[in-house]
Every structure is written in C-alpha cells, then in structure tokens.
C-alpha cells in the first residue's frame, strides 16, 4: 500500500506545532497501525530526520498507552478497539490519513503525538481505591457475596484502560466517562461503600481542577471508548455525587 500521512509534529508543549506530510510505500494490509508508524520512523531515521514520537506499550489493547486521533476519530474509524488493534486493511491504497494527538487543555502535548495524561492518574489518586487492613486479619474478598449483575457491572466499569479517547472525542473535553467508570467500579461493590461519598466528591473535584469540560451528554465518549464503557456510569456518578453532597 502507498499512503500519504499528515502527522502533527511539535517539539514540546511550548512550541507551535504543524501538520507535516509524509509519503510512505510498502505498507502491508496485515500490519497494525502502529507497525505502519514503525515503518515510517525506520525510514525517517535512515534519512537522518527525527522519528515521530507516539505512545505505545502492550500493543494488544489492554494498557491504554496508544492514543492518536486518526482521520478525526480517536483510535481510528473502527469501534471498540485501540489504535494498536487497528489494522492497515481498514485503509485503501492511496489513502491520505490525518494523525493528530488526543487534544484537550488538560492533556498538554509532550512531543509530536504524545500527550501528558497524568491528569487521569491524579483523578485516580484522589479516590480510586479502597482501604484494606492488611495486618493479617484481612477478610478474603470472595467471602463477601455480591449479586451477579452488580459484579458484572463493576467488572465492566473496571475494564476502562484510561486511554483518554473519551476526552479526545468529546467536544467539551469532558472526562466524565473515565471518572465515572473509576467511581462506578467501586460504588457497585460492598468493598467500595465505606469510602463511597468521599471518593466521588474528591474524584470529581480533582477532575474539575484538571480543567476538563462539562458533560453535555453528546454520547461521543461511549461510542469511541475502546472498552464500551456505558453512559450509565455517568448517570451513576451523578447520583452518587448528588447523594454525597446532600448527605455531606
């Protein structure tokens, strides 16, 4: 396959970036999108120019590192996958592909296509945990019976990989889907109940502090989320937040 790539290049957070055009040949349909970028970078290095910086780690859809806005959609045109799971057979010979970083005020660019998503870490640190006594008297989690549907919903919420596609796709750069998944995964379980009120208040507070936008229920996040995290989680977080505020 022959492709024309328009890729965002930016030295660092303080400099202005621009879209650069690259022509690339010899791309196979079976390559993943990231392998295609590897091929490009190999070529750039041989030519003595700087390779394109992009995030990746597991390359099997579980770590959330790979990002990229591809032709105007986070993780490209397919649903329920990450960029590392996107394959070049999805594109046609001669296509032009626009590749940009995930954009949001709260995700400043580090270099080229790499953005700083540590805002998510700080939201998680604000309350995305449970405190368990590990002094030797720990009660085995499995000894607490949990209804099947709640366990399933909690598990589904917990599959969020923190990739940030929800923020990238949202016209408001809202982090509600991410935060609500992290709140819900605990809110649905008895283990999470103890710290439930503080958790939701602190995590939402941190989310606002980081400068993410206000949700207007466009639903873009749910559609673009590689893990299919549902908007029900946002409604649950809103309920949790309201009851914690009223009780608080």
């Amino acid at each position: 396959m022959k492709l024309t790539l328009k890729i965002w290049r930016q030295e660092n957070a303080d400099t202005k970036g621009r879209l650069e055009t690259y022509n690339i040949d010899g791309i196979e349909e079976d390559m993943s999108f990231l392998e295609m970028l590897d091929v490009l970078n190999d070529k750039l290095v041989r030519e003595g120019t700087e390779p394109v910086e992009f995030d990746h780690d597991c390359r099997e859809g579980i770590c959330g590192a790979c990002s990229l806005m591809i032709n105007g959609e986070p993780h490209g045109p397919d649903k329920l996958i990450t960029t590392c799971q996107l394959h070049m057979r999805r594109f046609n010979d001669g296509d032009t592909i626009v590749i940009e970083p995930f954009r949001a005020k709260a995700f400043p660019i580090i270099k080229d296509l790499i953005v700083d998503r540590s805002a998510f870490d700080r939201i998680q640190q604000a309350g995305g945990y449970i405190s368990v006594n590990t002094s030797g008297n720990t009660i085995d989690a499995n000894s607490i019976p949990i209804e099947k549907d709640k366990a399933d919903m909690s598990f589904n919420a917990a599959t969020c990989i923190g990739c940030g596609a929800c923020v990238a796709s949202c016209k408001n750069a809202s982090a509600m889907l991410f935060t609500s998944a992290k709140v819900s995964q605990f809110a649905l379980l008895p283990q999470g109940e103890v710290e439930a009120a503080d958790r939701v208040l602190n995590m939402v507070n941190q989310m606002d502090k980081e400068g993410f936008g206000n949700c207007t229920n466009t639903g873009a996040c749910e559609v673009e989320c590689p893990k299919g995290i549902s908007l029900e989680n946002i409604a649950r977080m809103n309920r949790e937040y309201l009851s914690a505020s009223v009780a608080g």
Partner: peptide
C-alpha cells in the same frame, strides 16, 4: 458552560474532527 467547554478543548483544534461519527448534530 459553552465558554468553559471551549476553554477545556484547548487552544489548538483538531485539523480533522468527525463529530458525526459518534454524536448527533443536535447534541453538539
């Protein structure tokens, strides 16, 4: 809300943004 949300989007917009792929025009 509109002003805050524009600010949250950041100073540089996407060169290509396919809103119609994931949300309705009305909602946006």
């Amino acid at each position: 809300l509109e002003l805050q949300n524009r600010k949250a989007r950041g100073d540089v917009g996407y060169a290509m943004y396919k809103g119609s792929a994931n949300s309705s025009w009305l909602s946006r």
